[in-house]
């Protein structure tokens, strides 16, 4: 998507996220069982299933409308702490996407960062608290750096995904300072944070949907329906 992200690209990102959540549902729940309340996989799966269904609603014809709809649906269906955090991420991101179609890469990167700011405002998490922040923040830093260095968008998204995975893995030795895991204190050490794990899936899904090195029609909004297959 060197020319930017179309409505269909963003839909495909969300659908790819839903597929990755579904295939990793049990792993996420297992991670959560160790340091939380064993429902992260089930909750995210319920939410993303509702999101995929909601993508068929009428009137979702702009990038902002699609992304805000994703946020509202997650808020209404996920529950726990993940619902407000993921919901706020997409709502704030949707609010920063602007009107240009397709969305230019720099605008998309700035919108993702607005989403991160929303997560921070909602969850009050900082680096090293053993939360989704520890995967999301490094991913967006890597994305910005790559774009600033003139890397093409697909390479920048792949760099973000690699940074998200590294950030996710770095949560394992951390002591949880937010959420239910924080009651465990030192006993949370040695377990990967489930929120960071699902966030790494979110960024990996962006590679699936937005990061491919492929020829694309250059295009006005809505004309890019060629990549909706898994």
């Amino acid at each position: 998507m060197t020319n930017g992200a179309t409505v269909e690209d963003l839909r495909e990102w969300v659908r790819a996220f839903a597929r990755r959540i579904e295939s990793n549902k049990d792993l996420l729940t297992e991670l959560d069982a160790a340091i939380g309340d064993a429902d992260h996989g089930a909750n995210m799966h319920r939410g993303l299933t509702a999101v995929v269904a909601a993508l068929g609603d009428p009137g979702l014809d702009t990038p902002a409308a699609v992304v805000k709809k994703v946020g509202m649906t997650l808020v209404s269906t996920v529950g726990g702490a993940s619902g407000p955090l993921y919901g706020t991420f997409f709502l704030r991101m949707g609010g920063a996407l602007g009107d240009a179609q397709p969305v230019p890469p720099e605008t998309l990167a700035a919108a993702l960062r607005a989403g991160l700011d929303g997560v921070v405002a909602r969850g009050k998490a900082e680096a090293g608290d053993k939360t989704m922040y520890d995967a999301l923040a490094p991913a967006l830093d890597a994305l910005d750096e790559a774009l600033a260095a003139g890397e093409p968008w697909p390479a920048a998204v792949r760099a973000a995904a690699a940074a998200a995975e590294a950030g996710r893995d770095a949560t394992t030795p951390m002591t949880a300072r937010k959420g239910r895991a924080s009651y465990l204190g030192e006993r949370s050490v040695g377990h990967q944070d489930p929120g960071a794990a699902s966030t790494a899936l979110l960024i990996a899904s962006a590679v699936d949907a937005l990061g491919a090195d492929r020829e694309r029609s250059t295009t006005t909004a809505g004309a890019a329906g060629d990549d909706s297959a898994p």
Binding site: V75, A81, G123, R180
Partner: peptide, 11 residues
């Protein structure tokens, strides 16, 4: 005061 309750009520 549970993380999820506080955030959902806030929203």
């Amino acid at each position: 005061n549970y993380t999820g309750d506080v955030m959902n009520f806030e929203m």
